[in-house]
C-alpha cells in the first residue's frame, strides 16, 4: 500500500475521475480531484502532490496549457505529470512531451497498467 502519497486527477468527466480515483484508492493512494486545468491550478496551493494525472481536452483550460502552468510553478515544477486522454496521435504526444509530461496514456486504460505507471513515476 502506498501510504501518504497524494495524486491529483484532472478531468472534466466526473465518471472518468471516479474510475481513476477508485483504481488509485484501491492501491492505497490519497486522491485529489479537479474538473479542468483552472480548477486544478486553484487546488495546487502548496500541499504536497506526488503525481498529477491530467486529461488533455477540457473546458476553461486544456491539459497542455495546465501542464505548462504547472511547470512554471516552483512548488510543482518537478512533480511528474501523466497525460490521460483519448488523443493517440504522435503530434499530440509530442506536444505533451515538449510541455514536460512524463508519460502519455491513452484511454481506455487497464488498472494494473495505470498502477504500474503510477508506481514507476510517483515521487
Amino acid at each position: 500500500m502506498a501510504l501518504n502519497k497524494t495524486i491529483l486527477i484532472v478531468d472534466d468527466s466526473a465518471s472518468l475521475r471516479q474510475v481513476v480515483a477508485i483504481t488509485l484508492r484501491g492501491a492505497g493512494y490519497d486522491v485529489l480531484e479537479a474538473g479542468d486545468g483552472k480548477d486544478a491550478l486553484a487546488k495546487l496551493t502548496g500541499q504536497r502532490v506526488h503525481l498529477i494525472i491530467s486529461d488533455v481536452n477540457m473546458p476553461n483550460m486544456d491539459g497542455i496549457t495546465f501542464l505548462k502552468e504547472v511547470k512554471k510553478n516552483p512548488h510543482y515544477r518537478f512533480t511528474p505529470v501523466v497525460m490521460l486522454t483519448t488523443e493517440g496521435s504522435e503530434d499530440k504526444k509530442r506536444l505533451g512531451q515538449e510541455a514536460g509530461a512524463k508519460a502519455w496514456m491513452v484511454k481506455p486504460f487497464q488498472p494494473q497498467q495505470m498502477l504500474a505507471a503510477v508506481a514507476k513515476l510517483v515521487m
Binding site: 483519448t86 493517440g88 504526444k93 505533451g96 512531451q97 509530461a101 512524463k102 508519460a103 502519455w104 496514456m105 491513452v106 484511454k107 481506455p108 486504460f109 487497464q110 497498467q113 505507471a117 514507476k120
Partner: peptide
C-alpha cells in the same frame, strides 16, 4: 476499436 487498450508511452 474503442475497446482496445490505449497503451502508455513514457518520455
Amino acid at each position: 476499436s474503442s475497446g482496445n487498450n490505449g497503451g502508455i508511452t513514457f518520455f
